[in-house]
Nucleic acid binder design. Structure first.
Lengths: 311, 311
DNA sequence: ATTATGATGTCAAATGTATGTATAAACTAA
DNA sequence: TTAGTTTATACATACATTTGACATCATAAT
């Protein structure tokens, strides 16, 4: 999920904006987090711990005391694990101890498709919530979200599913993601992550996944939305001065409509060198051959951040 | 109302606008509420307590004394849910309260526009959250959301705002609404409320407001999304058998593209008589003259539900 | 008209709790 | 050494609770 899967207390402090002492006190007094320890006793945090701290900050900003915020999160965690038995009727849940991770994934997928088939948006969202809080975003995203969205699209194109099934399923995923990333509190001076669909593009969901990842990493996020006019992107960059701009291009349509698209963007990127411009998606992978100097291709935030570090 | 069912006195004060001292005094003197206590003696309120305090405020604003308001609520414990416009003994015209509310609204609006101006999505969402929990959806929707969205559109058309400011502001409102209504858990067998944009229509936000209202009223909600193909709506109705279908049509574009639109929909509606079909929005108000037999015009869920009852 | 009474919101003091920060002493790593 | 981590303790500020006082105002009694 992150560049690294563990953090020292100092890094956690920097990522959350909390002091190291406070992080320890929250652990001691309220059980806010439960980091593992190295042999020497040093605390070792994982990405989930960092997320939890950020969620606590968000709750505090909404009027919770830290004590109650922890209670609240723990309560919801409990609820999230009970939800398991809301499986559709035509599937009986197999809670055998011998289920491997693979079979569990395919069980989740089956449930998702069953929910989507009957247009049960909240069923989808509850399941995603459960998997998310149990296994984290990386697992959820790679093993469930992306394959699910992909096959939902397939089923629609193959006429296996009606359009409404595709729409409701996609929107359920979108709504889930929106709920997640708006539960993080980013510090005022955090760098900005701007996500936008390329003119002519209408698939926004991958961007929401990226935004959730960015929010977890401590960015403020802004979403420019579907198909903004060409100059809207420039206006936004000019005003917001984001650290990163990510553009989605899942189909070939945009390049058909405007063959100059990439060079236009490259030129825009060259004018704002404080901002890193990336383009991603299937459409971009197919057509964006020349790795531009200022506009680059990236399919995952992981590779994106690696790229930034090596610039 | 919310998923969570306990609040500290601080949050209750924030939610109701009462001071913590007053909340305690009301409890001590009149038994206004009876919160449980934590081990340390701190008060723990539940959603009912908060509701009750809000009802008391409403009664006081209508002229009741606090003492009588409590007595009134206790006497009418079972019908007290609807305490709307009951005339009190000594009704005094309190214009001061009204004007302060007016200035408060315009203050909120100013803040919203300030946030929107700098593309601060989470600023918008936090403010909406505050107003929502303090004054409820009706107030928020009528006095802030709809005027705000309206003027955001204006500013964009008048070139006062750039497109990105319009997009980010609208999306912030959308995300806020999505977060709200997905926090409602409707029972499995609740009637379904299906919202969809008419083919050619791309404004989805009003539908999200409607969905939130429906969720509050206990409906399961489903959102079919932007511009579904003509048959997608029929497929969805056929499969999901919603109790209510609401269609949004804010512009005139759809009727220009397909002059038969209304009669097509009327025909669809006539085939599913268990389902109530409504169409709303500025575009519909302008063009939908003949009040159809099965497809009807409605601009608010209030009027919609009144209409259903009188059918 | 003046006074007494009661209702109500606000304030203050005394006491305990919650929470963020600071320091000391021991230990670890580079 | 020097900087960072650990535990433990101390402390200040903010917050919660109880109790009672007080000012204001409307209403009833004088």
């Amino acid at each position: 999920m992150e560049q690294r899967d563990w953090y020292g207390i100092r890094q956690v402090a920097q990522l959350t904006g909390l002091s190291t002492q406070l992080i320890r006190k929250w652990e001691e007094r309220y059980g806010a987090v439960a980091p593992r320890r190295m042999e020497n006793g040093y605390r070792v945090y994982n990405a989930k711990d960092v997320m939890r701290l950020k969620q606590l900050q968000k709750l505090i900003s909404e009027g919770f005391s830290i004590r109650n915020a922890v209670l609240y999160l723990d309560e919801n965690k409990f609820e999230a694990e009970i939800v398991t038995d809301r499986s559709p009727d035509n599937l009986q849940e197999n809670t055998s101890l011998y289920t491997t991770k693979q079979t569990q994934i395919s069980q989740f997928m089956d449930m998702l498709f069953a929910f989507g088939e009957r247009g049960d948006s909240s069923g989808i969202q509850d399941l995603l919530q459960k998997v998310y809080s149990q296994y984290g975003l990386e697992f959820l995203s790679e093993n469930l979200l992306i394959p699910f969205l992909h096959e939902v699209g397939e089923r629609w194109e193959m006429r296996v599913w009606d359009e409404f099934q595709e729409h409701i399923s996609s929107l359920a995923v979108r709504d889930f993601l929106i709920r997640q990333y708006s539960s993080f509190l980013a510090p005022q001076d955090a760098p900005l992550f701007l996500a936008a669909c390329i003119p002519g593009e209408r698939h926004e969901i991958m961007l929401h996944i990226a935004m959730l990842e960015a929010a977890i990493r401590g960015f403020k996020t802004a979403f420019l939305g579907i198909s903004p006019a060409p100059n809207a992107l420039e206006d936004a960059v000019e005003s917001l001065r984001p650290k990163i701009v990510v553009l989605a291009m899942t189909t070939s349509a945009p390049i058909d409509e405007n063959p100059m698209l990439f060079s236009d963007l490259e030129q825009l990127a060259s004018r704002y060198r404080q901002t890193h411009f990336y383009i991603g998606g299937r459409g971009a992978r197919m057509h964006f051959k020349g790795t531009g100097k200022w506009l680059r291709f990236s399919d995952s935030l992981d590779s994106l951040f690696r790229d930034i570090e090596h610039r």
